[in-house]
């Protein structure tokens, strides 16, 4: 169990680190998805119970995992997917206009 939480922390920090330091636009988007997955993993862990089964309300299954985080995780996946899609669209557009993917060269806006 604990090791999973450690993984979440590592993934989260790794993602943030990628977003902040990488210059390549694609890599920045990767960073965003990494953070996203770490959060989804965290959601799963929050609802997890040892030996639990899928949340089906039936007498057969006594230990079920918490259903709410699963619903949340689904929503987060959807949102994350759309955010990533929009970002990638923008990356394509930027590449067409600026002919580069280096974030340091995309700086017409100053001041």
């Amino acid at each position: 169990m604990e090791i999973a939480y450690v993984a979440v922390i590592i993934l989260f920090c790794l993602g943030i680190y990628t977003i902040i330091t990488k210059k390549n636009l694609i890599k920045i988007v990767f960073g965003v998805t990494i953070v996203e997955s770490s959060l989804i993993l965290l959601l799963m862990l929050v609802g997890y119970k040892p030996d639990g089964t899928a949340p089906i309300l039936d007498k057969e299954y006594e230990i079920v995992v918490d259903p709410i985080p699963q619903a949340l995780a689904l929503t987060t996946v959807v949102i994350g997917g759309s955010v990533t899609a929009v970002m990638l669209v923008m990356v394509i557009k930027i590449h067409r206009r600026y002919r580069t993917l280096n974030i340091d060269e995309i700086r017409k806006l100053r001041g």
Binding site: I16, I20, T21, I103, D104, I106, R107, L109, R110, G111
Partner: peptide
């Protein structure tokens, strides 16, 4: 102050962290 805003995203993100 305005010169610090030179369009580098990494810099802005660094400020944020």
């Amino acid at each position: 102050l305005s010169n610090y805003h030179d369009g580098k995203l990494n810099k802005y993100l660094l400020w944020a962290t």
